[in-house]
C-alpha cells in the first residue's frame, strides 16, 4: 500500500469510527472549538489593538500649549529648540481659532458650545510630529521638562505615556488571552485523548487481530491518529465559523465598534484563520498521540504482546 492509499484508508476508518461514536466525538470537537474560539477571539482583539497602536504611533504628537501672553521672542526660542531636536520632524502652530474649529470638527456635538464660548478662547499651541524611535528614554524626558519650563510655555502634552499604557494593556490582554486559550486547549487535548482512547478500547479486539495477522504499528495507529486529527480540524473549523459569525453579529449590532472603521473592525488575517484550523488539527493529533501510548495498545515495555487486551 502506498502512502496515499494508506492515508485514504486511515481517513476512511477514522470517519467510520467518528460516525459510530459521534456523541463523544462531538464533545471533543466542541471542546476544541471553544478553546480555539477563545484564543482566536483574543487574537482578533489584540490584533486590532496592535493595529490601532500602530496607527497612533505613526501620528505620535507632541503638543506644546502656549501661555496667553506669549511674546514673539519666546516663540522663536521655542522653535529654535524644536529645530535643534533630532526627534522632532515637523511642527506647526495652531492658533486658538483653528484649535476650536478642529475640536468642533472632531466632536460635532460640542460645536454650539464652542461658538457660545467664543469669548473663552482655547490656548494656542504648537503641534510637533515626533519620530518615536528617537524619542524614548531619560534624555527625551529631560528635554521635555526643559521645554515645559521655557517662558511662554503653559504645558507640554506627550502621547507617549498613554501609548505606552495601551501597549502595556495590549500585552497583558494578549498574554492573558493566550494563557486562557492554552488552558482551554490543554483541556481540549485531554478530551480528544480520552475519546480516542475510548475508540481504541472499543477496537481492542480488532487491534489484537491486526497484530496477529502482521499489521505494522503504522497501520494499527494510523486510523486513531487520523481520528484525533479530524476531530481537531473539525473543532478548528467550527471555531473559525463561530468567530466569523460572532464578528458578523457584532458588526451588525455594534457598527461603531466592530464596523469596518471601528476599533475591532478587522477580522483575523487569512493566515491567522488557517492557523486556527491547523492548530485544531495539531491539538487533535497531540491528543491521539497521548492516548496511544504502548500500554493502551496491548504491548508491554519489553515488546511482548500477550494479546490478552
Amino acid at each position: 500500500m502506498n502512502l496515499a492509499q494508506a492515508i485514504a484508508y486511515f481517513l476512511r476508518e477514522a470517519v467510520q469510527n467518528l460516525l459510530v461514536g459521534w456523541r463523544v466525538a462531538l464533545v471533543a470537537v466542541f471542546s476544541i472549538a471553544v478553546s480555539l474560539l477563545t484564543g482566536g477571539g483574543f487574537v482578533l482583539i489584540s490584533g486590532n489593538v496592535a493595529r490601532l497602536l500602530d496607527e497612533w504611533t505613526e501620528r505620535a504628537r507632541l503638543v506644546i500649549y502656549l501661555e496667553e501672553g506669549v511674546t514673539p521672542a519666546e516663540r522663536e526660542a521655542l522653535e529654535a529648540r524644536l529645530a535643534a531636536a533630532p526627534a522632532v520632524e515637523t511642527w506647526e502652530e495652531v492658533d486658538s481659532r483653528a484649535a476650536a474649529a478642529r475640536l468642533a470638527d472632531s466632536f460635532p456635538s460640542l460645536a454650539p458650545l464652542l461658538e457660545e464660548q467664543g469669548s473663552v478662547p482655547l490656548p494656542a499651541s504648537v503641534e510637533a510630529r515626533v519620530d518615536r524611535r528617537s524619542s524614548r528614554g531619560e534624555e527625551w524626558g529631560l528635554w521635555l521638562s526643559e521645554l515645559a519650563a521655557l517662558p511662554g510655555v503653559e504645558d507640554v502634552d506627550d502621547d507617549e505615556d498613554w501609548i505606552r499604557q495601551m501597549e502595556g494593556f495590549a500585552g497583558i490582554a494578549g498574554t492573558a488571552g493566550l494563557a486562557l486559550g492554552g488552558v482551554l486547549m490543554a483541556a481540549a487535548i485531554l478530551t480528544i485523548a480520552s475519546v480516542v482512547r475510548l475508540t481504541v478500547y472499543n477496537h481492542r479486539e480488532e487491534v489484537a487481530t491486526l497484530r496477529l495477522v502482521g499489521a505494522t504499528e503504522f497501520f494499527i495507529r494510523g486510523p486513531f491518529y487520523a481520528e484525533g486529527l479530524l476531530q481537531g480540524l473539525l473543532g478548528g473549523t467550527l471555531a473559525l465559523g463561530g468567530l466569523l459569525a460572532l464578528h458578523g453579529w457584532a458588526r451588525a449590532t455594534l457598527p461603531g465598534v466592530a464596523g469596518p472603521e471601528g476599533p475591532l473592525g478587522r477580522f483575523l488575517a487569512p493566515q491567522e484563520s488557517v492557523a486556527l484550523v491547523v492548530l485544531g488539527g495539531l491539538a487533535g493529533l497531540v491528543g491521539a498521540v497521548l492516548s496511544l501510548r504502548r500500554e493502551s495498545l496491548g504491548v508491554s515495555e519489553t515488546g511482548e504482546n500477550p494479546l490478552d487486551i
Binding site: E205, E206, A208, R211, V213, G214, A215, T216
Partner: peptide
C-alpha cells in the same frame, strides 16, 4: 515482528472474529 507474523497463521479457541 509484523513481518514474522505474516509467515505464521494463528487460530484460537475463541475464534476472535470481529
Amino acid at each position: 515482528v509484523p513481518y514474522l507474523r505474516r509467515t505464521i497463521g494463528t487460530v484460537f479457541q475463541e475464534f476472535r472474529l470481529i
